[in-house]
Nucleic acid binder design. Structure first.
Lengths: 239, 239
DNA sequence: CGGCTCCTTACGAAACACGGACGTCGGCGA
DNA sequence: TCGCCGACGTCCGTGTTTCGTAAGGAGCCG
């Protein structure tokens, strides 16, 4: 039958604000078919009331509204919470775009627009406005969090300032916990060298311990394996 | 990098779907003279096959087709990708217009129509659908707003005057916040070069900081990741 | 206790980022 | 046409950060 993109709306709430019933009707129809839950408002005060009541995930807002200006509506909505807004502006009205930009619209569509384009924009803005969770590439263990992409590490939520080598070393340990590594292996894996003074590894392990361990004098996370090397042991870190 | 000349047809591919050879012939002729590369199909299945094979930039679709309905054709085409569609409908058949728009047509032309009008519609729809995939929406973070389409940026509502490189750099950062990028990556992503003096990146980051940071001497938004590169960090911009 | 291993500290060298300045190129107005 | 100006890429001097190594002391094991 009629099959909108399966991943599309997924029930996100959209508030359409336009005083022209025809436009509102068509836009609403499109968004509805795309899988969104659509609410409608015909003027500014109505829009604010519905926004407050329904907490939409996104607002499609006509710039030209009777009574209260679209910009004002946008501003007030933003005052209540960070809801994404797509502005509908007259074609080529450069000033309006800039105003929308400054007031806090997340996108604008110039009239006349194709409803399809509007749906694409809605999807795009929604997709962009919720990248909050994600972070699957995060390495977590023992109160530590390491984000290789951002090259950032935290300990109990507090930012750790690690040097490049320290970061690489910690990241390697957290990717391979519980196993003992000889200094030579660490030198190969972290430094990328096949030879070199192994005390280099020792020193860096010590520096890393100083920043990561609760009590660097009695290391728990990075344990010394006598005669072998080191082992990252997150089990004893929680404390 | 820049768009091709706004010259009319400029080789865009258009698929004309009509079972009436006379209509198809005239339309094809006009579009051909307007500079488009035109393909023709006489029925639904033929249209779908050619659309799949030739990937047209736009489809002119007769609503009334033998065998498969034009609406159905439109739906199926949409299932394969976001191709713009102009519907040909009988005059005054209001229901058809609505149906066409709901199914995803970007415009419609009522029969009888002048071929010249159709060409104008084609141009219009192509012009409208072009920025949709290419240009992206507004980027905002940390009191900054960047409009890639208008090539404008503001900071706390105030206009920023950025050079081309500065703008591209900032836009890239705002599209990819929180991740650390090596100078090589920035050079590749922003400059589009795979070589070149990396200090160029350093210098432009400094210039951008001078315009974007509250205290350029102690950057918060664009942070230096020592030994690696830079990271755009909107989290610290608001406070 | 002896030998080996690991820890700790210190230091010089190298790598790195930064700011300032310069030369070139192209656009624009006089 | 000439001259000015902005954008851009490059280069250099400087201050800072990081790194690798050396050396002495402490710890572990038999």
């Amino acid at each position: 039958m009629e099959q909108p993109p399966p991943d599309a709306g997924s029930g996100a709430r959209v508030l359409v604000v336009d005083d022209d019933p025809t436009v509102a009707e068509i836009v609403t129809g499109y968004l509805d078919r795309a899988g969104y839950v659509v609410d409608r408002a015909g003027d500014g005060p109505d829009a604010l009331a519905r926004a407050a009541a329904h907490r939409p995930d996104l607002v499609v807002l006509d710039l030209m509204l009777p009574g209260m200006d679209g910009l004002e509506v946008c501003r007030r909505m933003r005052g209540h919470g960070p809801v994404p807004v797509i502005m509908l502006t007259a074609r080529g009205d450069e000033d309006d775009r800039i105003l929308g930009l400054e007031v806090g619209a997340d996108d604008y569509v110039t009239k006349p627009f194709s409803p399809r384009e509007l749906v694409l924009r809605v999807e795009s803005v929604l997709r962009r406005s919720r990248p909050a969770p994600a972070a699957s590439a995060l390495l977590r263990a023992a109160g530590l969090a390491v984000d290789p992409a951002a090259r950032r590490a935290t300990k109990h939520g507090g930012e750790l300032s690690l040097t490049m080598r320290e970061f690489d070393l910690l990241a390697f340990f957290m990717r391979n916990p519980g196993r003992a590594y000889a200094r030579e292996e660490l030198m190969r894996e972290v430094w990328g060298w096949d030879f070199g003074d192994l005390s280099t590894v020792t020193v860096h392990v010590r520096r890393l311990r100083g920043k990561v361990e609760d009590d660097p004098a009695r290391p728990r996370l990075i344990q010394t394996v006598w005669g072998v090397g080191y082992r990252f042991d997150p089990a004893f870190g929680e404390g």
